[in-house]
């Protein structure tokens, strides 16, 4: 019963992953698939795998996916334009091939009742798993961790950039601002917020200066209807 519910949720989410137009929706469907799989592990008496599946896949890996998708394109939808010629046909052929192999393979297998689970889980699922990982499969385990560390270091090396000038601390920046003020009279503090002393407080209402004139610097360039006016340029006078 629980399998039927979980399996249908998982399959529906997997279809959602295929047919969602927005990448974020697809990533979310994938998250549901992962959680569905984790639940199935839980019903199959593999509690450790259940927790790890959620922590690692849903919590870490998919979150990274989401990060990238959100930062790269907030609103982008999938385009259906092919960038590689004949990609659709090839993909369809390979997909059908994979499906046929899977059906043939699974169809061959005879499914009997589960055996050996209680002896495998004797003394607690977590303890038995730890026993196996740190005795029989210790080399595979260590090799995997070495691989992952290598990958992480590789990514860091690729992204690393040697710093040429020393990093400016908050103190340095403050000193620089004061020096600029002494030299050119550039305003020290933050820009005036929009709407100060004005009739409205919306973002496109310029703040009023003590003499009643409007401060153009208080309105963001995007809202002021053109990037050419006062917000971007430096200088004290209005």
């Amino acid at each position: 019963m629980s399998f039927v519910i979980l399996a249908s949720v998982t399959v529906i989410a997997a279809l959602g992953l295929l047919f969602a137009r927005k990448p974020v929706h697809a990533a979310l469907s994938l998250a549901v698939v992962m959680i569905g799989l984790a639940m199935i592990y839980a019903t199959l008496e593999a509690p450790f795998l259940f927790a790890v599946q959620i922590v690692v896949y849903t919590g870490a890996i998919l979150m990274l996916f989401l990060f990238v998708i959100m930062l790269v394109g907030v609103d982008t939808s999938d385009t259906l334009k092919e960038t590689i010629a004949g990609q659709k046909v090839l993909a369809a052929l390979l997909g059908i091939g994979l499906g046929a192999t899977l059906i043939a393979g699974v169809g061959q297998a005879s499914i009997a009742t589960m055996r050996g689970l209680s002896s495998a889980n004797e003394g607690g699922n977590v303890h038995r798993l730890a026993d196996l990982l740190f005795s029989r499969y210790v080399i595979a385990f260590e090799a995997t961790s070495a691989l992952l560390i290598t990958a992480a270091i590789g990514a860091m090396v690729l992204a690393h950039r040697e710093r040429i000038d020393p990093k400016q601390s908050q103190t340095d920046l403050a000193r620089k601002r004061v020096a600029d003020y002494a030299k050119s009279g550039k305003h020290l503090g933050p820009l005036p917020p929009p709407g100060t002393f004005a009739r409205h407080n919306s973002n496109d209402t310029p703040a009023l200066l003590p003499d009643g004139s409007q401060s153009k610097k208080s309105v963001p360039a995007i809202l002021a209807g053109g990037a050419s006016n006062g917000t971007g340029d430096e200088g004290q006078g209005e």
Binding site: I54, T58, M70, V126
Partner: peptide, 28 residues
């Protein structure tokens, strides 16, 4: 209770993060 209860808490907490991330993203 379960043999992995504390890991379960961590796992569920990591699902809770989704709410915040997605809320931030979906607001536009």
């Amino acid at each position: 209770d379960m043999p992995v209860a504390v890991l379960f808490v961590m796992a569920i907490a990591s699902i809770g993060i989704y709410g915040i991330v997605l809320g931030g993203w979906a607001s536009g």
